[in-house]
Each structure stands twice: as C-alpha cells, then as structure tokens.
Amino acid sequence: MAIQNLSAIENMLAQMRAVTQAASAGSVRPTSTVADSGGFAAELSRSLARVSEMQNSAAAQGRAFQMGAPDVALNDVMIDMQKAGIAFQATVQVRNRLVAAYQEIARMAV
C-alpha cells in the first residue's frame, strides 16, 4: 500500500514538473490565434466550463465511492475534490478582481 502511494506521489511530481517545463518554455500563442478563438470572453467561458466539469466529475466520483464502487479509491476522490475546490476558489478570486476592476473603471471621471 505504501509503495502505491509513493508511485502516485511520483506521478504527481512528474506531472507538476511537466507543467513547470511547459510554462517556462514560453509557449505563448500568437495574438491572432487568441483573437480568432473568441478572445477574453471565450477563454473565460472555457475556463468556467472546465471548473464546472471538474466539480461535476469530483461529485460523481464521490457518489461512486459512497455507493461502494470497487474501482474508486478514497484518496483519488479526496484529491479530485480538493482540485475542484481550489479551481472554484481561484475562479471566485478572478471574478472578484474583475468586479473590482469594473468598479474602478466605472468610478473614473470622463
């Protein structure tokens, strides 16, 4: 059991390293691609859809664990629920920043 936990941790670390390398590689999309894909509103919509999908998936996995599905482990359920919770908290923070920016722009004298 402990060896399985170590391999899961090593897999998670490998994923984190891959994400870090991808971020440091500077894989930035050209601005024309961003404009063609719908811009900020489309990206915000896609992000909200991903967060919603994470929450729905974590909830479904939690229900499957409660029902006694043999292929669902408690640690996987807890990790997925934490990921969904963190994604939701980040989304709320982004929303708060957007609202604050909008209010500041609305207060500007023209």
Rank of each mutant, 00 (worst) to 15 (best):
S52R: 12
A69T: 00
I79S: 11
Q82F: 12
I79R: 13
A101V: 03
V72D: 00
S27Q: 12
A2H: 12
Q66M: 05
V94C: 01
A22G: 04
M81D: 05
Q103E: 13
A69H: 02
E10L: 11
A35Y: 06
Q82H: 11
A100Q: 13
A14D: 12
V19L: 08
E10S: 11
A73D: 15
R95C: 06
N56H: 06
L98V: 09
M67D: 01
Q55E: 10
M81P: 01
M78L: 12
F40K: 09
T20Q: 10
R97E: 15
S27Y: 04
R107M: 07
R97V: 01
R107H: 07
A42P: 09
A41E: 15
A25V: 00
V19C: 00
Q93D: 13
V28N: 10
A2C: 02
A101Q: 14
A42R: 14
S24M: 07
Q4D: 13
Q4K: 13
A14N: 09
V99R: 10
A84Q: 10
V110K: 12
V99F: 06
F65K: 00
P30D: 15
M12P: 01
A2Y: 04
V34F: 14
A25I: 00
R46L: 03
V19Q: 15
E10R: 10
V34N: 09
A14H: 08
M12L: 14
D71C: 02
L13E: 13
N11R: 14
A25H: 09
A2D: 10
G39R: 12
A8C: 02
A18P: 02
E104N: 14
R50A: 12
S45W: 00
M1L: 04
M12R: 14
V28A: 13
S24I: 03
V28S: 10
I9A: 10
R63E: 05
M12V: 04
D80I: 02
L13M: 14
M54P: 05
L44Y: 07
Q21V: 02
V94T: 10
E53N: 09
V92P: 03
I79T: 15
F40T: 14
G85L: 04
V99I: 12
V94H: 11
A109V: 06
L6H: 09
N96Y: 04
E104L: 02
D36H: 15
A60F: 01
V77S: 02
A22S: 15
R17Q: 12
R17A: 03
L13P: 04
A42W: 02
V51F: 01
A64C: 03
Q15M: 06
A18N: 08
D71A: 03
R46I: 00
Q4C: 03
P70V: 01
A106S: 12
A69Y: 00
A59V: 02
I86D: 14
A100Y: 03
Q103R: 11
P70E: 08
A60E: 06
G26S: 05
I79Y: 11
A18R: 08
S52T: 09
V92D: 03
V51R: 07
